[in-house]
């Protein structure tokens, strides 16, 4: 690697430390804000006596829907992640190993690529009409379906990269030993792809937890998720700054957990496509 000396070394340190601080500082400021009373926020007081008022109001307030939002997000995130892993892993394996004609793979990947590239709002309009017909509008099931579809392309690509890394010889050996293709897949290949499943699952859950545009338009009070809940703290007559800050902090909990415990998988998932 490069060897930095003198001025270059200082610039390097400044860049790296400065960036890290720039990333962390907004979180700290917002954390501080979330412990302020509204009057301390709107006067911009630097010294204040911390209060749990905003958190109490967000989590236990009589008019707050936030606990429900969290529950909805957890349900939608968990169910959609499991289902997208099942559907996505099977099809990824199928495309990677089961000798489909070239055009099948190309069509599948090309279409998912296109779908993943267009702004999701182009399709939310038709979904709105279609989901109403199907009775899926304003249901958690509807949102789960939407999140499966949104996360499917990413899951398929990621799992395909993992399957391609597994030597073909392993499968062939299993087949020679009398395994059916299904057995070869479930007993031999799948266990080897577990790190991939974890990486894809983590990303699918996070994307579902974070997803806003679809949830905003296809849910209402009883089915709203965390991002929709956060957005609602900016109301017409009164922007609840303290509650907005507290809800934002709560919404980052999955991200924080992953940062400490799942970093390896996240980095792997995010960089996989790029490096390969």
């Amino acid at each position: 690697m490069l060897t930095l000396n003198g001025r270059e070394l200082w610039i390097g340190y400044a860049l790296v430390i400065g960036s890290a601080l720039a990333i962390v500082a907004p979180f700290l400021w917002i954390l501080m804000t979330s412990f302020k009373f509204p009057i301390a926020i709107s006067t911009g007081a630097l010294w204040f006596s911390p209060t749990g008022f905003n958190y109490a109001d967000v989590l236990f307030g009589a008019r707050s829907d936030f606990p429900r939002n969290v529950a909805n997000s957890l349900v939608v995130g968990a169910v959609s992640t499991i289902l997208v892993l099942v559907i996505g892993t099977l099809s990824a394996y199928s495309l990677a190993r089961l000798r489909w004609a070239r055009w099948v793979g190309r069509l599948f990947l090309g279409w998912t690529m296109l779908f993943n590239t267009v702004p999701v709002l182009t399709i939310v309009g038709p979904w709105y009409l279609f989901f109403q017909q199907l009775g899926l509008y304003n249901t958690l099931a509807g949102l789960i379906v939407a999140h499966i579809i949104i996360n499917l392309p990413m899951t398929v690509w990621l799992m395909m990269t993992f399957f391609r890394d597994i030597p073909v010889e392993l499968e062939e050996a299993a087949r020679v030993d009398g395994c059916t293709p299904a057995q070869a897949f479930f007993k031999v290949i799948l266990p080897l792809a577990v790190p991939g499943l974890i990486a894809a699952g983590i990303l699918a859950f996070v994307f579902s937890w974070n997803e806003f545009a679809v949830a905003l338009n296809l849910t209402s009070r009883m089915t709203a998720t965390v991002p929709v809940g956060i957005a609602q703290f900016a109301q017409q007559y009164e922007i609840q700054n303290g509650q907005m800050a507290a809800a934002s902090i709560i919404s980052t909990i999955p991200a924080l957990l992953l940062m400490f415990f799942g970093q390896r998988f996240v980095v792997q998932g995010l960089t996989m496509g790029a490096v390969k």
Binding site: I23, N210, S248
Partner: peptide, 15 residues
């Protein structure tokens, strides 16, 4: 560096 990527964009907007 992982943190901003994983946090809900809505939370980032409100921050």
């Amino acid at each position: 560096m992982i943190l901003p990527i994983l946090v809900p964009p809505v939370a980032i907007g409100s921050m």
